[in-house]
């Protein structure tokens, strides 16, 4: 028996050798940078050639605690992440429930609802900038047609409207992942149970509450946790839209850290911000998922 296992191990060695270069690359571009980034957080590293790098202990973190702009962006990031995740989860489940009917006319809606997943952040930005334009955007044109005096709304230019508009764009762009997962989960919902409930005269609302939502829960809770941190770090979309409309204090922490590094060259400080963001995300995911794991163990 032991002999057979050892030959199997030897047999797989050829595959391992084949994959060794991949392992080296993973270490080079994934592991080493993370370690370096954590180390850099404790230095005064700034961009430039032949700059001395000194170990400064916790100085970056101390500075961060006095950096009001970072706090503002952190708060904004939290609000953005919570709102957009709640919004996409609720709407995504609604769309999945709609799509989960075996009707042929639902197919185009399915393609439409999932299509943002196939688009790049700059493409999404172009689409919504065109749609929300002050002069030619259809919303503004319709408002003017209705003789509303405010038919020139700068959805993306107005500082008070910028954030709500961003939420709508975020909901549009980030929903497909949730729709798809909820849809996949609904496909394995017991049809017999569902039909039995219909015959027993259970109202659709009761069915939603007692059958469908509990069924979706194990899929939705981890997805909610992951989306919360993904959206907290949703760099691309916001960075691109901000590129053309930078209202004051509208940066979420990831974009803030990115600018610190690539605009001001503050690699040490940016790394400290990155480490803080990563730690925060880890704690968040752990807190949400621990509760669920405990429940599933019972």
């Amino acid at each position: 028996m032991t002999k057979r296992i050892s030959t199997i191990k030897n047999q797989d060695r050829s595959v391992k050798i084949l994959l060794a270069p991949l392992l080296v690359l993973i270490i080079l571009v994934s592991t080493v940078p993370i370690i370096l980034s954590v180390l850099a957080a404790f230095t005064d590293w700034v961009a430039g050639i032949d700059v001395d790098i000194n170990f400064v202990g916790l100085a970056n973190f101390k500075y961060m605690l006095t950096d009001m702009q970072f706090f503002a962006s952190f708060k904004l990031g939290l609000i953005w992440s919570i709102l957009v995740t709640v919004l996409t989860t609720i709407m995504g489940v609604c769309v999945a429930l709609l799509l989960n009917q075996n009707k042929r006319y639902m197919f185009p809606l399915k393609l439409l609802a999932l299509s943002p997943w196939a688009m790049s952040p700059p493409a999404i930005a172009v689409i919504w900038i065109t749609l929300m334009n002050v002069n030619s955007g259809p919303f503004n044109v319709i408002l003017r047609k209705l003789n509303v005096p405010a038919g020139k709304i700068g959805f993306l230019e107005d500082p008070t409207l910028f954030f709500p508009t961003l939420l709508v764009i975020g909901a549009w762009a980030l929903m497909p992942m949730i729709t798809l997962s909820a849809l996949a989960s609904l496909k394995i919902l017991s049809r017999e149970l569902s039909e039995a409930m219909d015959i027993d005269g259970v109202t659709p609302l009761q069915k939603l509450r007692h059958l469908i939502l509990p069924h979706l829960r194990p899929v939705l809770v981890p997805l909610f946790a992951l989306n919360l941190i993904w959206n907290f770090g949703a760099f691309d979309l916001i960075y691109v839209i901000l590129g053309s409309f930078p209202p004051p204090n509208s940066e979420i922490p990831i974009v803030f850290a990115f600018r610190q590094a690539f605009k001001y060259g503050q690699f040490g400080y940016a790394s400290a911000l990155g480490v803080t963001i990563a730690l925060f995300e880890l704690v968040l995911v752990y807190a949400i998922l621990r509760k669920q794991m405990r429940e599933s163990n019972q």
Partner: peptide, 21 residues
């Protein structure tokens, strides 16, 4: 572990040092 942690770790964190490497 790597698959999971790569989902949790913000990629932006690896971008600064990676740029220099």
């Amino acid at each position: 572990g790597w698959v999971l942690s790569s989902q949790v770790f913000p990629s932006i964190l690896t971008v600064f040092p990676l740029f220099l490497i």
